[in-house]
């Protein structure tokens, strides 16, 4: 992105805005959903869940700020967070799927085990799976915005 490319033409700018808005919606739904699980349903978040929250919650703020007025540099700031969250989500998924051996599990001491499946929606959707899906969608949309605005 060059010095002047932060404001694209009105029409393409609208698509960018909509994509970032969609990312923001996903992040906001993820935040409220995770808060619902922990605060309302009383499911204790394990350590890996917390790390994913640390990556997800700031996106709600950063993306919103980047939308008013539309500032495409927001992609630069949001993407690393989304990638980190995605990585932790995948790791989490591998831990409770049993692909990562028990000795490598980081969070058995005292707290809540990351390998325990606390919630299954419709019998197969777990919380880390939803987290990976949300991060993936956000990453795809942010990368798309980045690519199409490359001079």
């Amino acid at each position: 992105m060059g010095n002047t490319s932060n404001t694209s033409s009105p029409e393409t700018g609208l698509l960018d805005w909509r994509l970032i808005f969609a990312c923001w919606l996903l992040a906001a739904v993820s935040m409220l959903g995770s808060l619902f699980f922990s605060e309302i349903m009383g499911l204790q978040p394990c350590v890996l869940c917390w790390y994913q929250r640390i990556a997800m919650y700031p996106l709600v703020v950063i993306l919103l700020v980047g939308m008013f007025p539309l500032d495409l540099r927001v992609v630069r700031y949001a993407l690393p967070l989304a990638l980190i969250g995605w990585g932790i989500g995948v790791y989490h998924y591998l831990v409770f799927s049993g692909y990562i051996p028990e000795s490598l599990r980081p969070c058995d001491e005292g707290g809540v085990s990351c390998s325990e499946i606390n919630l299954e929606l419709f019998g197969f959707i777990t919380i880390p799976m939803m987290s990976i899906l949300a991060f993936t969608a956000i990453i795809v949309m942010l990368v798309f915005v980045k690519k199409r605005n490359r001079p």
Binding site: F21, W24, L25, L32, F36, M67, F68
Partner: peptide, 20 residues
């Protein structure tokens, strides 16, 4: 745009409160 985001945020919060 501001209206859209405000409505979206309100819908999310109302949904959250309703689910609660």
């Amino acid at each position: 745009k501001g209206t859209i985001v405000t409505i979206a945020a309100l819908v999310l919060i109302i949904f959250f409160a309703g689910a609660t």
